[in-house]
Design a protein around this nucleic acid. Structure first.
Lengths: 341, 341
DNA sequence: ATTTTATTGATTTACGTACATCAAAATTGG
DNA sequence: CCAATTTTGATGTACGTAAATCAATAAAAT
């Protein structure tokens, strides 16, 4: 049987009230007594029954998710996953709120972080915009004792407790090797379509991609990055244009959103032309394109996993508990047409 | 605030005891009364607080994992993951037992299932051997009201509640496409190394592999399957032998265990020879081989995820609750040297 | 109409923890 | 050494549910 507070009290030779004071760091316990209790806790291997504790406290976890107000499939999907999690709130004792802030606007994000901090939620998850002032604002939250996890886009160098997202450098490297190997030693040019070089995850993907290409596939030459602002229309224009005037393009890496435009351009301009395409994010559009052969591979991060992981981690941190690292690692999914879910 | 049993009692105009009788399907409630209570439950959207219920019941979930006594890295890893889960038993209210049975022996598995059934655990997870008598034994367990999930290897057509493992046909298809694309249109022969064709997952992987190869890569010719019995020594002998007498082999698909022997054979016999290799299961050996270029891609199933998923599902089923399907889907991991965890 | 049986209500205890209150004991300061 | 203060103990209530007991009522059988 697992030890209870009663066992601790008996073992330490103190009363239940004292054990409670130690456990919940309430004042009024002498140093030596506190140590006796802590020793007993360690000796018996006591772990607080979180379910019972939460019941007694009537605890709920108010969590705030701060997302950029971007209009693309991925963000819509992320939003939907959070709303699904909200639907489970009753059973999970969470009280989740979604806040949207203008995309790519550090100031707005900082202001929102301050507003959120004032509400003292049990935890905050945010899609980080990579800027020093955001880092500072996050650090302030953490120092205030509020657990923070970054979602999808990390904020390295900050004090955030956890990052629920994929390793984007590895993603770029993986894309490069897939593309390089699929092209089987052919010589030619590669177009790279990104959302914006101002976003950290896009920069990182490009960095990983370029480095593997340079080292291992010298026969493939990278054209200057096309910035589609994650907008299908812009992406369409850029890709159609590039394919139109450059016959040497044999491969495309789309590392951002807005793939709807990319796919349309491919269907118009690349008929009968051998083109190997690797894109990010599995959506209805990219999925169809993968099945019909327009796209050769899709790299994906599972938004549902990211959201559930963020919630688990925030709850655990709020309770001062550890997490199962392997479980919280967000994996890079590689989809070919054969292993679609 | 979420409704409690008291609210249900008030709404239905009955006493707490009656609500309890309905909720826990105890006898002594008239049909009409039962319906009144059930209506109130539905109207108020009552969901039982599982944490409080478990606390009151002092509930633990005795779970039994039945594994084949196979001596390969994957089974060792699976075993280790279950032991890790056992270490979390205290906080998760589980009481997990591992039982080993001779591998590939339906009779032994059936006997064990009967023994286990007699102990009436809250749930059973088993690595299924595909045989009619096993199916029947599993069905008996399920009809007895004991939740059953298959682990790693499924038992289609049985009444098992859930399968915690990957889609092996998709895995084989994916391997075929990776190998085919990496070989870039070259013409030649492919060696396939399996454990045993008596195991369902191996048969399925081969089936998927062969079908994509036949349909989409006609220039590649499959040699007869080599059965290495998941044994490194046998695998080494078979592969060394095949490479020695067939110069036309340009690719290898290893769909079972025993990759240590495969890797050794490759290092001895394939120096300077262009060979594309796709293997299953990420272990210390295959990982090193992927990094040094001996293997080109590894397909993997995360044993930790499988075990945690099996436990979550068994607990949920034992409580008559639903599961989050997307969360319980075991994904096929594709590892290139760039996205290793 | 009376007995038997089936339903229902009322009430209590328990699970493990949190938290509050008041009294008792120990320690500290002067 | 006494008073003031700090520390500790004892005890009770609460959280939402489970489970048991016993009394009370209703319905069915005789």
């Amino acid at each position: 049987m697992r030890p209870t507070v009663h066992d601790i009290a008996a073992a330490a030779g103190v009363s239940l009230a004292t054990v409670d004071r130690v456990l919940n760091q309430r004042p009024g316990v002498r140093h030596v007594t506190r140590e006796k209790v802590e020793t007993a806790i360690r000796d018996l291997g006591y772990v607080r029954d979180v379910a019972a504790a939460n019941l007694a406290k009537g605890r709920v976890y108010p969590l705030t998710f701060i997302l950029p107000a971007s209009d693309n499939s991925f963000m819509h999907g992320l939003n939907a996953e959070i709303r699904t999690a909200i639907a489970r709130s009753a059973t999970e004792r969470t009280d989740i709120r979604i806040v949207e802030v203008p995309a790519f606007d550090p100031q707005a994000l900082v202001r929102e972080l301050q507003t959120v901090a004032a509400e003292r939620p049990s935890g905050v998850a945010l899609v980080a915009t990579d800027a020093p002032e955001v880092r500072a604002a996050v650090d302030r939250l953490v120092q205030d004792g509020i657990p923070v996890v970054t979602l999808v886009s990390d904020l390295t160098g900050s004090l955030r407790h956890h990052y629920a997202g994929v390793d984007n450098i590895a993603a770029g490297r993986t894309a490069a090797r897939l593309l390089g190997r699929f092209l089987g030693g052919a010589k030619g040019e590669l177009a790279v379509l990104a959302g914006s070089m101002l976003v950290r995850d896009h920069r990182e993907r490009l960095e990983g991609f370029a480095s593997v290409m340079a080292q291992e596939f010298p026969a493939l030459h990278l054209l200057p990055v096309l910035e589609g602002r994650d907008d299908p229309e812009v992406a369409h224009m850029l890709i159609a244009n590039a394919l139109g005037k450059n016959d040497g393009i044999i491969g495309i890496y789309s590392l951002g959103a807005g793939n709807r435009g990319l796919i349309r351009a491919l269907k118009e301009k690349a008929i009968g032309r051998p083109l190997t395409v690797v894109a990010h994010e599995l959506t209805a559009h990219t999925r169809a394109a993968l099945v019909d052969g327009t796209i050769d591979a899709i790299l994906n991060q599972d938004a549902g996993h990211e959201v559930r992981s963020a919630i688990r981690v925030l709850k655990a941190k709020a309770d001062g508990l550890g997490v199962i690292d392997a479980q919280e690692r967000i994996r890079l999914d590689i989809f070919l047409k054969d292993n679609l879910p």
